[in-house]
């Protein structure tokens, strides 16, 4: 699974992208985020408040209940500030 991070999610986690192989029981975004939080303090800090996290699965906006599968591109980021 391709993970992408932007904005302060990226700076707190310390990388902009990585390829990870979550366990098979991870089937939705919520489960994925909880699993990521176990990976270290940076992840824990970046993802502690889910209210402030936005998610895209395969470049489409998704919510925490959205399904994820091993081939997906999942991006986690703060609320967008375009314009």
């Amino acid at each position: 699974m391709q993970l992408l991070y932007f904005g302060w999610v990226r700076t707190k986690i310390g990388t902009s992208r990585e390829t990870l192989d979550p366990p098979a029981e991870i089937t939705d975004v919520r489960g994925l985020v909880e699993w990521l939080k176990q990976r270290g303090d940076g992840y824990q800090e970046a993802l502690q408040d889910l209210e402030t996290i936005r998610v895209a699965v395969n470049q489409d906006m998704a919510d925490l209940d959205a399904a994820v599968t091993p081939g997906d591109e999942v991006a986690l980021f703060p609320p967008m500030t375009g314009g």
């Binding site: 932007f6 904005g7 302060w8 700076t11 895209a56 906006m61 991006a75 980021f77 703060p78 609320p79 967008m80 500030t81 375009g82 314009g83």
Partner: peptide, 23 residues
């Protein structure tokens, strides 16, 4: 719409350091 739906993030730099612009 661009303000809230275009995936951009802004990092401002000032004398006090770097600061991500909040939505």
């Amino acid at each position: 719409w661009l303000k809230t739906k275009a995936p951009f993030w802004k990092l401002e730099e000032s004398d006090s350091g770097e600061n991500w612009v909040a939505a």
